[in-house]
Amino acid sequence: MADAGKGHACGVRRRGRDDEIKLVGFLCNWCSYAGADMAGTSRLAQPAALRIVRVPCSGRVDPLLVMKAFQEGADGVLVSGCHPGDCHYNEGNYYARRRLELLKRMLPYYGVEPERFHYTWVSASEGGRWAEVVAEFTAAVEPLGKLHYAGGAPAAAAGEEDGDG
């Protein structure tokens, strides 16, 4: 692969403090990303834990991507699309709604507190609402602290028998 290129320093951890929560937001290009832009244009101060990933449509967000984010160290994941009925692709967010609602219900069984995941609808004109969504979501995840979803050491001893055999 083309990986033979320069620089292997990319793998260094960038974040300073270990107790800082990290949030990932998947925003549809047409409504929510534009709404977040509007919040910025309006200089609406927001907590800084969120990192936005732009996607064309909330329907592009594979629930697996959300879980991947948790595995890779996200302490909360936010998905935001156009309001139902306003999807740029007409119906993408309707598919998204079913998938994401199911994911939300499954998260506790995967071992993730449901508060760590939120999906919502923010239009291009709702800059104020976007700022609120970010503030509320950050405030909801903060008390839960770091997730350590995958790769961390198990809290209990590995020997305990949980299986059926």
Binding site: G11, V12, R13, R14, R15, K22, V24, R51, V53, V55, P56, R60, D62, L65, K68, A69, E72, G73, A74
Partner: peptide
Amino acid sequence: GYTDNQLISEVVEVLR
């Protein structure tokens, strides 16, 4: 432009 691997790598990077 929005392949799975592109999105995965983006997620990995913002969380590194």
